[in-house]
Design a protein around this nucleic acid. Structure first.
Length: 589
RNA sequence: GCCCCUUUAGCUCAGCUGGUAGAGCAGCGGACUCUUAAUCCGUAGGUCGAGUGUUCGAGCCACUCAGGGGGCACCA
């Protein structure tokens, strides 16, 4: 066996890898395992069952609900080893289970180890389900919150392994307790239920194999098992620790995965094709936002990380992909908040021969269906009202539909015949302390005032529509009123989830609107689009009438998981770089 | 970019009006053959985010910087 590799403490001093006393102890234990010829990083153990599978087995048979003693299938009863409890004996099969040791409780010559595996997040629900059964059978309810499964290890069954892993022995260096909380362990044995009723794996040495093995030595101690990981910074910077300590966080990301799968299934079934368009753009377009800039060395040209995929997707509609979608990241160089991350995941889909009204129907169907799939209901709880009471949101279709102008009247205190009077709107904004840029055109004034007065009322899902043309350079004008465009935004819980419109496919109008953007930029607007001549050329070939929609996936996942901050639904949210030493921090400035 | 709060042992947190560092858990040693935040006894563990200043004396006061949180601005 090759020598156990060891880092020179001097090379890691002053870095995050610097060793404290606890880590040095564990590193010594890892070396002790190695010196015994057992790898501290073994990969030759294949578990046969998960915690959830184990609990399902216990639940399946009424005789497994009360304490019982295990006897291996096919083995004769050993009268010498009968349990003193008088508990019934059940024949069970050999099982191998593995996971992370989350608590070790050595009590004399028995040890209990709580193990957490990949199914941890589903374990409490299963325990609760069992409690219903127990009540029906007249048995007492059991604690259901723990996400772990228990290993039971009696010294009598394998004294050598027991002592090595759990018993101190001052004679030899680290022949003592080699197993720590945090280690990845694998155990083999029989399922049984302890005298106190806990579902457990009774560890046994089969065919000369040790009953329990340390598969991966954890040399860095986990947070306090009772208080857990409370520090928000560590939770987000070291998401791996967060996921270990908080299985419910894993559940959020399992649901996120379900949302993405559900969206794809929904669109695929309707004949949409998923595509991937460039993330690096030479021109800025598709949304109004400040970009991240980068540089291509070989071509010596500036590039932007995309702020939206819209213009590329509509080129594909021109090319005949009449139903098309993309789920991917957008990048916007803006502040961080509870609702904003610089990179976020956006679904955009485009459908030829459809209007924005058709997309309202499609979006409400999609969201209601996702809620049903992911939450099992369309009635979700998200955020809280002013009194702090949880807010009920119904995602059942159909959703409410409100015009911008109606909102100004209903919530803004504007008379119905004055919603087009810029002076009135600006005075009202000033009264409310809402800042609106002095150069903003009427349409922008209407939208800004609307958002200031109405958004907080849009708790239940609401499509807001009849947006003014000035703020929507890519949307189709309304046939009856050319001052507005056929566009909606969907608000839920007071935040914007979706933005959609009937697409502008008149190349002349599109060119003029791009030119208008350039004139706005000349006036100092920092969030204008570039004039994309190739996109206008594409429209000149003819884009079928179409409507397109964008949905913020992160925010949708927030709604469906109850998360109130976008960081909770992004595995690695953007943070400042970690300053490990004062020197590093100083050299950055 | 602005304002407020925050940073103490591996983790969670105390620390009074400025007087020289505390607890629980984890660790290490001991007892314990059905525990589940096990219990009991013993023991060890600290550059109080970094720096400067005030002071006889700073975890505590002042200033600067950094990280984190919240809010504002920005984000159609």
């Amino acid at each position: 066996m090759p020598a156990h590799p060891e880092l020179d403490p001097a090379t890691v001093a002053g870095t995050v890898l610097e060793r404290n006393t606890l880590m040095l102890q564990r590193l010594t234990k890892a070396k002790a395992l190695h010196d015994r010829g057992e790898s501290a990083y073994a990969n030759d153990f294949a578990p046969t069952h998960t915690a959830v599978q184990a609990l399902q087995w216990f639940q399946a048979e009424p005789t497994h609900l009360a304490p019982f003693v295990a006897l291996e299938v096919g083995k004769p009863l050993d009268p010498e080893r009968l349990p003193p409890t008088g508990a019934p004996i059940v024949q069970t099969a050999r099982v191998k289970m593995a996971g992370r040791a989350m608590a070790i409780n050595v009590k004399g010559k028995v040890a209990f180890v709580r193990v957490q595996d990949r199914t941890a997040a589903q374990v409490p629900a299963l325990r609760k389900a069992e409690n219903l059964l127990r009540v029906a059978c007249g048995l007492p309810e059991r604690e259901a919150d723990t996400p772990t499964f228990q290993f039971y290890f009696s010294r009598d069954d394998d004294p050598e392994t027991f002592d090595r892993l759990f018993k101190p022995s001052p004679d030899a260096a680290w022949e003592g307790p080699l197993c720590d909380v945090g280690d990845i362990i694998g155990g083999e044995g029989l399922w049984f239920r302890t005298r106190t009723g806990e579902q457990s794996l009774w560890l046994k040495p089969f065919d000369g194999r040790p009953a329990l093995r340390v598969l991966t030595k954890s040399v860095r101690p986990l947070p306090d098992k009772f208080h857990g990981l409370a520090d928000k910074e560590t939770r987000l910077r070291q998401r791996y620790v967060d996921l270990v300590m908080n299985p419910e966080v894993r559940e959020i990301f399992r649901k996120r995965s379900q949302v993405l799968a559900g969206v794809r299934r929904f669109l695929d079934e309707r004949g949409y094709i998923e595509v991937e368009t460039p993330m690096m753009h030479a021109l800025l377009g598709g949304a109004a936002a400040r970009p991240f800039r980068t540089h291509h060395n070989a071509l010596d040209m500036p590039l932007y990380l995309r702020i939206a995929p819209e213009l590329h997707l509509k080129r594909l509609v021109v090319g005949g992909i009449e139903r098309v979608y993309e789920i991917n990241r957008n990048f916007r160089n803006e502040g961080l908040s509870q609702r904003h991350n610089p990179e976020f995941t956006m679904l955009e889909f485009y459908r030829a021969y459809a209007t924005f009204f058709d997309l309202m129907d499609e979006v409400e169907t999609l969201i209601a269906q996702l809620a049903q799939e992911v939450c099992g209901t369309t009635e979700v709880v998200w955020g809280s009202d002013k009194q702090g009471a949880p807010r009920q949101i119904s995602l059942a279709a159909p959703f409410a539909r409100v015009r911008i102008k109606d909102g100004l009247v209903q919530w803004g205190g504007i008379a119905a015949d004055q919603v087009g009077d810029e002076g009135v709107l600006r005075r009202r904004a000033a009264e409310l302390g809402v800042h609106i840029d002095a150069h903003a055109p009427l349409g922008k004034v209407q939208v800004e005032l609307f958002e200031a007065v109405a958004e907080r009322h849009l708790i239940q899902p609401t499509f807001v529509w009849e947006y003014p043309a000035e703020t929507s350079p890519l949307a189709r004008r309304n046939d009856a009123d050319p001052s507005v465009v056929d566009r909606f935004e969907l608000f839920v819980g007071g935040i914007e989830i979706s933005n959609a419109f009937s697409e502008l496919n008149d190349p002349q109008d599109q060119y003029l609107r791009f030119e208008h953007q350039l004139s706005q930029r000349a006036k100092g607007d920092e969030e204008t689009m570039d004039l994309d001549e190739d996109y206008v050329r594409a429209l000149e070939y003819g884009m079928p009438p179409a409507a397109g929609c964008g949905i913020g996936i992160d925010r949708l996942v927030m709604l469906l998981t109850g998360a109130e901050a976008i960081r909770e639904v992004i595995l690695f949210p953007h943070m400042r770089p970690e300053a490990t030493t004062p020197e590093v921090a100083a050299s950055d400035s």
